[in-house]
């Protein structure tokens, strides 16, 4: 199973051109989901996972299961973008929160 996952990631690295040309495959969708999942893990570790991110990921997984690889990939890319926004927010807040504190 581990080897299989590694293979998927490799394929994912090799086919971004194909993916952007909207020729989504099972492998490209799975790789987009893996990338989103990694970013979501980071967001969760910073205590800032957005509900919309989780919803987009759910859509991606469902579409993958149903064999709609294009929809799966689009939703996964969206999930990753949202997760990145929340990570960016959490990072910024580590310095900015003091501005909101009352003394």
């Amino acid at each position: 199973m581990k080897g299989f996952r590694c293979g998927l990631v490799l394929v994912g690295l090799l086919v971004p051109v194909a993916a952007s040309a909207a020729v989504a495959s099972k492998a490209s969708a799975a790789s987009a989901i893996a990338a989103a999942q990694a970013e979501m893990k980071l967001a969760a570790s910073m205590q800032d996972q957005w509900i919309a991110t989780v919803a987009a990921m759910k859509d991606a997984r469902l579409a993958l299961k149903q064999g709609d690889f294009a929809a799966a990939e689009t939703a996964a890319v969206h999930a990753k973008a949202l997760a990145s926004l929340s990570v960016e927010q959490a990072k910024a807040q580590r310095a900015l929160w003091v501005n909101e504190a009352v003394h």
Partner: peptide, 18 residues
Amino acid sequence: GKEYFYSRRGQLNFSCAS
């Protein structure tokens, strides 16, 4: 706890303090 209270989070970008 203090940092959590004052940190904005979520898609709406609110902290507890907001």
